[in-house]
Structures are given as structure tokens and as C-alpha cells.
Design a protein around this nucleic acid. Sequence first.
DNA 1: GTTCTGACA
DNA 2: TGTCAGTA
Length: 123
Amino acid sequence: MTTTNSVSGLRIGDLAAATGASARSLRYYEQQELITSERSLGGQRHYDDATVERVRLIRQLLAAGLGTETIREVLPCVHDPAARTPWLAERLAAELDRIDDRIDCLQRTRTTLAAVIKDYRAG
DNA sequence: GTTCTGACA
DNA sequence: TGTCAGTA
């Protein structure tokens, strides 16, 4: 569309380019209430500059294996100490354990694959 | 041309 | 998450 209105901010294509997330993913993040946007008269989404950093963090957490529900719960306290609660601390500790388990799993797999490759190269 | 929603894979 | 359809 080429509608002109007063709504400023990044359009979904801009945010996608700035974060590496696809427009499809960005709409999904919004649907999951991980990010918010304003709508122009034509219904187009417009994002605040701060959303760029937020999306990068979301993708980092997603890549680490956290689910969207967990991210939604945890995101508020990352940059806002006031949002940190005992319950959230337990939640984060649980995620830390999961990540450690995952690291262990990856490390074992790495060792296995490395051995196979070494064996192959040795002929 | 870009984005929107809903739907299917 | 990609992609297709029909729009605005």
C-alpha cells in the first residue's frame, strides 16, 4: 500500500531487515504477545525503535529453546528490575537447568561426531 | 511494491 | 515458519 498517514515508526519490512526475523515471524510474535505495534489507518503495523532490540532478544531466547509462553513471562523482567519476582527467579532457574542439560547433550553429541570424523580422516 | 488476514503444510 | 490467495 502507499497510504499516507501520521503514524511513524518502522514498518514490518524494516523491522524484519533490522532483526533478521521474517515478517511472518514478527506477526507471529505479536500474536503470541511478545511484541506490540501501532496500526496506521490502513491497518499496517508500525514498531517503536526499541522493538528492534526486543526482537533480537526474543530470537536469542527462541534459539536457546525457550517457548513463546516462557519468553512472554520472562521478557518483562529482563530490562525492568521492578518486574522481578521470586516466582520469576524460580522460572529462570528452571530455564537455566534446561539450558545446561541441553549444553551437556550437545557436548556429548559433539564428542561423538568428532570421534567419527577423526576416525574417517585417519583412514 | 508492501502489507494484511486466514489457511494449509 | 514458509507460502499462497485476495485485498487495501
